[in-house]
Amino acid sequence: MGEPDRVLALATEAMRGGNLADKVIFTLAKAAGNLKLEKQDHEVLRQAVQFLKEVKSGYDWIDEPTISPESKTYAFSFKTAASSWWQMVSSPLQFVEDINVMIKTTEDLSEDKPPNRDSLRKTRLFFDRVFRHSIDRFSTLTARPEVPELRDAEY
């Protein structure tokens, strides 16, 4: 892969997490405001659950390290989540607990069950941080000279 391809690929990848987070924030805000969730909100919540499960798989990867196209996705989701949330936790255990809580919250919402308010607040904050992290990552990647990893040879 050449440098232009890598820049575009990484920037597009950075947008992936942000794109989802953008929609999830909106849906969770509606839920927090006790507004009715529409069909597309449920689809967004389904994608949020999938992302959070990928984060967990990425977290567990190190215990059975095997490379595959799926493991790349898990690793990317885990890195995105960790970069966004590591300052909010004091230990790896708390990180996993938080992710489990968020999975439960989004699953409850997608089944129209009323979520725990504290858990909902935490989940909103998490996706908000994912969203901002994605924007920052995108900006860093597109400011190419500052990113050493993008200055590699491309033969």
């Binding site: 990425g58 977290y59 990867w61 190190i62 390290p65 490379i67 493991s71 790349k72 898990y74 690793a75 990317f76 885990f78 890195k79 989540a81 960790a82 970069s83 949330w85 590591w86 936790v89 230990s91 790896p92 990180f95």
Partner: peptide, 12 residues
């Protein structure tokens, strides 16, 4: 957590 993610993401 961040360190673990760094290793996981880089190797992958």
């Amino acid at each position: 957590v961040m360190f673990k993610a760094f290793v996981t993401e880089n190797v992958n």
